[in-house]
Nucleic acid binder design. Structure first.
Ligand SMILES: [Zn+2]
Ligand SMILES: [Zn+2]
Ligand SMILES: [Zn+2]
Ligand SMILES: [Zn+2]
Lengths: 138, 138
DNA sequence: ATTTAAATGCAACATTGTTGCGTTATTAAA
DNA sequence: TTTAATAACGCAACAATGTTGCATTTAAAT
């Protein structure tokens, strides 16, 4: 299936109109080899109005089409959701890794199962953010 | 040892002057039963200039006296560092838990050991952010 | 008490978040 | 294909926060 057709399907599934702006943003996010920083989105989408970028990102986040991958919280990174997510539930089974050298952030599947238990607490979601040095920078 | 004396020691250790503002901020952060949201700091420290709050937080973060506990990234939370940390290395062995009901964020020690391995990657730090429902809200 | 370097407050500007509203575009229905 | 309803977009405007420079005040060493 064509990638654009897939995007249109993703959007219509959430009752979001498949507009050129949204398709372009999705194309940029998906084409980036890792999670894309907000500043990079601004650069690549200069012709977007600031508010349009803001609202488009919110719509896609809320629809569970993209997700934030904010490791170390200085800049926000965005990446496509791999599974079917919604605003209430992002079903990510992966962790986020940020290389402290090249600052690249990527979604990584690990074989390790993360088992966390907290007494008297009903755990709904566990987010893991890993930092270190990637293979390219080693 | 007096708690204020401990704060003075923490600050001098990092070559930071033990000023009344810094001691007051530390007292507020330490007295809060969980990680304190930025908005709460603003409320409790209204007499602080905006820039002073900004720079004081940065100085204490950089010195490894407090740390950010930003779960789900809508608001930033701050908490005392339990171990001896520095700007380069926050040695936290705990996870951050946010209750989706009362929005309280706390630093929690877990007995579970988090074992993460990523092929061809040299891991330096693993941050775990857990959300769910706390005992009070269950 | 004096001195030096750091901390603070204020002003100023940059960036980002956020909302309302008129215009434009999508999409479903006719 | 045309039309109509509704959502998306661009622009303006304002709020909140980030960030820096500089003059004044303060901490702490001498
Ligand atoms: Zn790297
Ligand atoms: Zn991810
Ligand atoms: Zn709760
Ligand atoms: Zn903590």
């Amino acid at each position: 299936m064509n990638v654009e057709t897939k995007f249109i399907e993703l959007l219509r599934d959430r009752n979001l109109k498949a507009t050129p702006k949204r398709l372009e943003l999705l194309t940029v996010v998906a084409a980036f080899n890792s999670a894309i920083p907000y500043s990079e989105l601004q650069k690549k989408l200069k012709h977007f109005d600031r508010v349009t970028l803001y609202r488009t990102l919110h719509a896609l986040l809320d629809g569970g089409i993209i997700h934030k991958a904010s490791v170390s919280s200085d800049e926000v990174y965005y990446a496509m959701c791999k599974e079917y997510c919604t605003s209430e539930c992002h079903n990510h089974k992966h962790v986020h890794f940020k290389c402290v050298e090249c600052l690249e952030v990527s979604c990584v599947n690990t074989t390790n199962t993360i088992q966390i238990q907290i007494p008297n607490v009903q755990i709904q979601q566990v987010d893991v953010e890993v930092s270190g040095v990637c293979s390219k920078c080693m």
